[in-house]
Design a binder for these strands. Structure first.
Lengths: 342, 342
DNA sequence: CCGTCGTGCTAAATCGAGTTAGCACACAGC
DNA sequence: GCTGTGTGCTAACTCGATTTAGCACGACGG
């Protein structure tokens, strides 16, 4: 709380001008400074505990060392905090801080928030959605360094960071293939079109493609694909209950852990055991996956890595548009076993 | 991206000095400005789309309109994002932005992060823990406006925002009493001492006190209290399985939803139905509560409100130390019914 | 006609850095 | 001795706001 040490204080103590002190401390070499002077300045700065005032520097140089994270909503998905943590940690490693703000999907709020950030001379922006979707960044953002996180934008050129959903689908399928399943693999919660998500939710579409590709490679295909209206457990329960009315699956690929939770309940109600009778693999790797009995194998959403990757792109000032895909690793648990020997 | 409109531009267009423009636009009345001039300045600002550069203002006034949120870790608890959202939303309502940073519990990281914030002239701080605990804020923080969020600090005077755990305990107990339970109410996951949490985890201790008080008021008490080592479902499963070996509970109060999840599994394995045979009430109201079958009644942790309340205190510049308790509402669901008529 | 007061504004300093232009001095070469 | 060339530094300006001190003018009283 005591008044800050300024560059002028350092210069005075070292017996040089502010100019000289500034050149030494910002490490610039295009001005000749005698090494003895250099040492004196550095010593003075050290003794006084000098820290440059970044507000003042920002005013002069237009560089504030801050990144703005603008997302539709952090809160609705419980693990989005990980994205923020990944972003904040990486930013900090590069001496940057992160402003976090949410628009709740309101374009007016979005504009005002962005304006507040611009007023504070934020250097660069993370434009994020909390589940993969198509979004239109505000016009105000044009011309600034931006990385799109977990969303795609048609008419906005910027690097885009996305989970590798296609490969994730293949990973899930291969986990079952490796355990010996090949026929009667059913998919719960496949691609799903709505007016809001034409062509299906991005993640769903890609996961499906990955699953199909991996299965096709060994000459097979999903025995059925059941779309679910929504991803709460009860929809998984319904879908699987119905499925069990007319089929006898060897394995289930559920599109997320909540659906898998519902699937577990339905299997249980039908007297089927996981993984003895039916193997289950899922996506997201939420906490739920490790809580279920038996623990659920799930292909993890790389929340933390999405954050770190996006900030790294910003810090390195990569501007070429294009997608960076972050791997989704399989967390293998007890829910996958060999096919039942019926 | 086009070069910003500055105060000088506005002044020029209005045909006045920067001084006059500044006084008009910052709404100060201690200098006499003719109302015709006022109007001209406002019109000019409006036409040019003037926005004050907050970096420049910050340099001059030492007020940047930023709040620093320093927490041990956002990521380990999935709903902590809500705290951030509450804080960010409220900050935005007051034209402030929030820097979010995590220390991962490392005091060196904490110090460096704080220093980065101070270098950017952050106005005020939220010092937060993601589950209620005792923490020691760094010395650097002394003298700045600070609100403690979800943590208590002995030798650091600052307003403190905490969930009202005691009342929450009473709420849970009353929910059972209201349904007719009075005997054979068992507690799963009571107060629990460790070297890290002497006297027990704050929340646990207080919830227990609230439960005891509410039950005592009608002349009863918990039939038993089982401490759990950790809060994963399997510990709840174990605790309840063991309990069922020698007791026949009428209702269970679980210390959080994960334990309740384990409790459900144990009850199910013993052929007991919720709520027909045993009622269950819990704390936290995570997503899990609404996913379980039957849906779990749970006393909600007010994450969002913790964030809003803390920022409100900061913005209003309340400095008196003391605790503000945020209510924890009961989310009543299907897991509570009348006592079984054995 | 002079002093006083109130009104309405401006010039200039300030915050703490970064940056441009150029000065003072030493030394070498002729 | 005079010029030219580095070397090593400083004075002064700049970023875009806020803020202090004070000026110019008209009205009014005596």
């Amino acid at each position: 709380m005591s008044s800050r040490v300024t560059l002028a204080d350092v210069a005075r103590r070292a017996g040089v001008s502010r100019t000289a002190a500034s050149f030494v401390l910002s490490g610039r070499t295009d001005m000749r400074i005698a090494s003895a002077t250099r040492e004196r300045v550095l010593a003075a700065a050290d003794e006084l505990g000098y820290r440059p005032n970044l507000t003042a520097r920002g005013l002069r140089t237009n560089v504030t060392g801050t990144i703005g994270l603008i997302s539709d909503t952090i809160a609705t998905t419980p693990y989005a905090g990980e994205v923020i943590k990944g972003a904040a940690d990486t930013a900090f490693k590069h001496d940057r801080l992160i402003f976090v703000a949410e628009t709740s999907g309101d374009p007016n709020v979005e504009r005002d928030l962005l304006q507040e950030m611009l007023d504070r001379q934020v250097d660069a922006f993370l434009y994020a959605a909390m589940f993969t979707q198509s979004r239109q960044p505000p016009e105000l953002l044009r011309g600034y360094p931006v990385v799109l996180l977990n969303c795609v934008a048609e008419s906005f050129d910027a690097p885009t960071v996305l989970p590798d959903e296609t490969e994730a689908g293949a990973t899930a399928a291969r986990a079952l293939l490796d355990a010996g399943h090949i026929e009667r693999i059913h998919v719960i919660g496949g691609r799903h079109d709505t007016t809001e998500t034409p062509g299906g939710v991005v993640a769903g579409r890609e996961r499906m493609a990955g699953i199909n590709a991996a299965l096709a490679k060994v000459g097979t295909a999903p025995a059925s694909v059941t779309e679910c209206v929504w991803h709460a457990p009860k929809y998984g329960y319904r879908a699987v209950s119905e499925l069990l009315g007319h089929a006898r699956p060897s394995a289930l690929i559920c599109f997320n852990d909540r659906l898998a939770f519902g699937a577990y309940q339905a299997l249980h109600d039908h007297g089927l055991r996981v993984p003895d009778d039916v193997s289950v693999v899922s996506f997201d790797d939420s906490d739920l996956a490790s809580w279920l009995r038996p623990a659920l194998s799930s292909v993890a959403l790389p929340h933390y890595e999405l954050g770190t990757t996006a900030v790294t792109l910003l810090v390195e000032n990569r501007r070429e548009p294009g997608q960076v895909r972050v791997p989704m690793p399989l967390r293998a648990r007890a829910s996958i076993g060999p096919p039942a020997t019926t």
